[in-house]
């Protein structure tokens, strides 16, 4: 019974797992780069969710369909393209911040930075 659910919804399980990992990375890790990695995993797990939720098994892309066919709504994928752009920009901002922080404090360890900035 439980297994059935797990197998039927394995994609959701995967994305929730990824999300948790990412969340842990953001909160639990003290290294700023690792935090950023966690952040990316977190964001991408959500993209996975979108994409897999929108997929219809056996569906095709709705490009010039001659006859009625099972097709996949393209909108979520398009949305995720936008979201990926956003995520990449966020990562870019984050990384540049990390570079500035490293130049300023000479370390990427959060505890040390907090100590230094007192």
């Amino acid at each position: 019974m439980v297994l059935d659910i797990i197998f039927a919804k394995y994609n959701y399980i995967i994305y929730i797992t990824l999300m948790t990992i990412g969340f842990y990375g953001m909160i639990g890790k003290r290294n700023l780069i690792k935090k950023l990695i966690g952040m990316s995993i977190f964001q991408y797990s959500i993209f996975l969710f979108y994409v897999s939720a929108a997929d219809v098994s056996g569906g095709t892309a709705p490009i010039l369909l001659k006859e009625p066919a099972v097709y996949v709504n393209p909108l979520p994928h398009v949305l995720i393209l936008t979201a990926i752009v956003v995520a990449v920009s966020t990562l870019a901002v984050g990384l540049s911040l990390v570079i500035r922080i490293y130049k300023e404090f000479g370390t990427l360890d959060e505890d040390k930075i907090i100590e230094l900035s007192r």
Binding site: V93, I101, E104, S117
Partner: peptide, 19 residues
């Protein structure tokens, strides 16, 4: 100097919220 870490923390929080 101090704003860098403030901004970084804000970014982490902000990204969680955006997600």
């Amino acid at each position: 100097r101090h704003s860098l870490t403030a901004s970084f923390n804000y970014m982490i929080m902000g990204t969680v919220s955006a997600s």
